[in-house]
């Protein structure tokens, strides 16, 4: 009973936080020469929003949402997300192994190179890719890389590469850091003393041990990917899910559509968070057993 009450209370809190955040512009009205604060209007709108959310029988409910091409665009955006995510994980793993088995001197340079990309703003990367593709087109006259999403075309290759460029380095940096820490563990020393090679230790023992940490880190990667996809779809004018989102925001879509869109957008994060929760529970369980 107590748990149920607290769960109810907390979900009410989440809902009120949501309403508060998205109606904040109503509290802060922009006056002629100062920012005015009015709560009454805010309260009215919040009440309206709440009523609207629970009025499912209404015909107007999700009207704009139903008009838009939601499934197609959502499929597109999510497939970009998934492809980039798998690509990032694979490439980051392979590169990490390559860096770790490289000679010491080269390894330091490579690590510094990876660290450099931490500071690069995402827009710079998007611009550079755009510039690269267009100058390639100008130089060769061939249009083999689709960039813009005009006339309903949905390009895959360039958006995926653009979107996953920076998250790749983010994950790679994390992997290198984690594996360097893992090298100080006693079992690595023991395995080395037993005469097992470095590559075998790395591939079989260490990677298996850092897998849970990678799952936890994937949340950040997905987060960055989502905001990158949003930027890229806007800048390349691709008719993806985020485009529908913009339409809903600017054309005064109802509150329920906004909520539905946001939920759909944060679905991957929820999934990966659930995975992370399971993994961390399992680790804690095994630790308790080993103690």
């Amino acid at each position: 009973m107590k748990r149920l009450l607290s769960a109810l209370f907390r979900s009410a809190l989440v809902l009120s936080g949501f309403l508060f955040i998205f109606n904040l512009p109503l509290i802060l009205g922009i006056g002629v020469d100062s920012v005015e604060i009015h709560f009454d209007q805010f309260w009215e709108v919040v009440k309206n929003n709440l009523q609207f959310l629970f009025q499912i029988k209404d015909d107007m409910y999700l009207s704009l949402f139903k008009q838009l091409d939601i499934t197609g665009s959502y499929q597109y955006t999510m497939s970009i997300l998934l492809i980039s995510l798998t690509g990032i994980i694979l490439i980051a793993m392979v590169t990490m192994v390559l860096i770790m088995i490289a000679p010491e001197k080269i390894r330091i340079y490579l690590k510094n190179g990876v660290n450099f990309f931490e500071a690069v703003p995402d827009l710079l990367i998007i611009f550079l890719f755009q510039f690269f593709v267009i100058s390639l087109y100008k130089a060769t006259g061939f249009k083999f890389l689709r960039l813009y999403g005009v006339f309903g075309v949905k390009p895959y290759f360039i958006p995926i590469i653009t979107v996953s460029f920076l998250p790749l380095f983010l994950l790679l940096q994390f992997l290198i850091q984690v594996i360097t820490e893992e090298q100080n563990q006693l079992y690595v020393l023991y395995v080395k003393a037993k005469g097992i090679g470095r590559l075998r230790t790395l591939l079989i023992h260490m990677i298996r041990n850092i897998l849970p940490l990678i799952v936890l880190q994937l949340r950040t990667v997905i987060w960055v990917l989502l905001s990158n996809i949003y930027l890229v779809e806007h800048m390349f004018n691709i008719n993806g899910f985020t485009k529908q989102f913009v339409i809903i925001i600017y054309q005064g879509g109802d509150f329920a559509s906004l909520v539905a869109c946001l939920l759909m957008l944060s679905l991957p994060l929820l999934v990966i968070e659930a995975a992370g929760w399971l993994v961390s529970k399992r680790i804690k369980g095994t630790e308790a057993v080993s103690l």
Partner: peptide
């Protein structure tokens, strides 16, 4: 819990939604 929304929605989206009033200001 209250700010849970911010953990699941990229901040750029929230910023855009909150900044819309300044896109069409009436002579302020």
């Amino acid at each position: 819990d209250f700010f849970l929304t911010m953990r699941y929605i990229p901040s750029i989206l929230i910023a855009i939604i909150l900044m819309i009033p300044i896109k069409f200001p009436d002579d302020v």
